[in-house]
Design a protein around this nucleic acid. Structure first.
Lengths: 198, 198
DNA sequence: TGTACATCAGTGAACGCGCGTTCACTGATGTAC
DNA sequence: TGTACATCAGTGAACGCGCGTTCACTGATGTAC
C-alpha cells in the first residue's frame, strides 16, 4: 500500500471535521465541496472516494457532530457537571461567537428542512436523545419533566440563534441572559406542587 | 404612460409577496431571482428595474413581512385576542406546516447571520418590537416581564423550527405541545411573588 | 392637427462564475510466480 | 531474485447547470411644438 494502514479513515475523518466546521460557520448550502477538499489538503475528485454525494456528507457530518457533543455531555455529567452548567455554556457569549465548534442545531436547523428524509430522521433520533439527557437531569419526579426538557432545549436553540442574528450587542446579551434565567428558573421552581398548578 | 398609475408599485409589491413566500418555503439562498420573476409573470431583466440587488430584495422582503405580521398582532390585540392565542397560533400544526405564510424568523433565522449588516439591523429593530409587544401583554408589574417576553419568543422560535425539522410526527406534536404549555405556564404563574424566587 | 421625440416598464440573450459530479489517469505499494 | 500485474488513494481537467447581474433593445404612451 502507498499509504499506511488507517490513512484513508484519517482522511475521511479530517473531511468530516472540516466540513462540520464550515457548515456550522457558513451554512450547508453556501459551502462548496471544493472549499472543503482544499481545506483538507486534497483536490476535488478525491471527495467521491469518500462519499457518494454532498447529501451523504451532510448526513455523516451531522451524525458525527451530534455524537461527539452527546459524548461530551455524558462525560461532563460523569464528572459532576450540572444541567445548569450546560445551560450557561450553551447560552454563553463564547458559544454565540463560535458557531463553527458549537451546536449544529442552532447553526443550521432551518436548512435541515430542505434536506433528505434520511438526514432528518438521523437528526430526529439525536435530538430525542438530547431531550432525554436533559430530562434525566431535571430534579423531581413529576410528569412535566419531559415537557420541560423539550422546552428548555427549544428555548436555548431559539435564543442562541436570535442572539447571533441581531446586530445590537446589548440586545444580544439581553437575549442570552433572559433565556438563561428563564431556563434555570424552569428547572429549579418546577417542583411537583408547582407543576400541578399548570 | 403605457401602464396605468400605480402599476409599477403593484408589480413591486407582487415581487415582494412572491419572494417572501418562496424565501420562507425554500430558504433565501436556494431561491433564484429567475424563479421569483417567473412566478411574478415577468422576465429576468425586469428585476433590476425594482431592486438594486438580491440583498436589497431580501432586506425589503424581511421588513415588509415583519411589518405585516406586526400589524396583524396589533389588530388582533385591538379585537381582544390574547397573548395565549398568539402562542397557540404560533405553535400550531398549521403554522408548522405552512412556512410560506408564517413567521420569517422561524423560517430562515440561521441564514440571516450570513446577510448584510443593514438587513440584520432591520431584523434587530423588528425583533425588539416583537419583544415589546409580548412584554406589554404579560400580566403583572414585575421586572421580569422583559426577560419573559424574550424567553417566550425564543422558545416559540426554537420549538417551531424543531417541530419542522423532525421527521417523526409524534415527536413534532410533542414539541409543539410542550412549548405551548411551558409558554402559557410562564405567563400565568410568573406573578410578582413567584418571580421574586428567581 | 400632425409629427418628432422622451419616457420607462419590461424583454431576453448574454456575461463570468462556482456549483456538484464524472472520469481517465497517476504512481507508490503489495502480491504472484 | 526479478518481473509483471493488481490495488487504490488521490489528481486535475472537464461536464452541464443555474446563479446574480448586465445591457441593448422594444413598444406603448405622453409631451412639445
Amino acid at each position: 500500500m502507498r499509504y499506511k494502514a488507517g490513512h484513508k479513515d484519517e482522511t475521511h475523518q479530517r473531511i468530516l471535521d472540516i466540513a462540520g466546521k464550515l457548515f456550522r460557520k457558513n451554512g450547508i448550502a453556501s459551502v462548496g465541496l471544493a472549499s472543503i477538499m482544499k481545506d483538507a489538503g486534497l483536490t476535488n475528485g478525491a471527495f467521491y472516494a469518500h462519499f457518494d454525494s454532498k447529501e451523504t456528507l451532510v448526513k455523516e457530518v451531522l451524525g458525527d457532530i451530534l455524537d461527539q457533543r452527546d459524548l461530551q455531555i455524558v462525560e461532563g455529567l460523569k464528572n459532576g457537571a450540572s444541567l445548569k452548567q450546560f445551560i450557561y455554556d450553551y447560552l454563553s457569549p463564547f458559544h454565540r461567537d463560535h458557531c463553527e465548534s458549537g451546536c449544529p442545531t442552532s447553526a443550521f436547523i432551518s436548512e435541515l428542512i430542505h434536506h433528505s428524509k434520511s438526514t432528518r430522521t438521523l437528526f430526529t433520533e439525536k435530538t430525542v436523545r438530547i431531550f432525554d439527557r436533559i430530562e434525566q437531569q431535571i430534579q423531581g419526579e413529576n410528569s412535566y419533566r419531559a415537557n420541560l426538557a423539550i422546552s428548555i432545549f427549544s428555548l436555548m436553540v431559539g435564543a442562541l440563534q436570535l442572539s447571533r442574528a441581531v446586530t445590537d450587542k446589548i440586545v444580544s446579551e439581553k437575549i442570552l441572559k433572559a433565556a438563561s434565567e428563564t431556563a434555570i428558573s424552569l428547572i429549579s421552581t418546577m417542583s411537583d406542587e408547582d407543576a400541578a398548578v399548570n
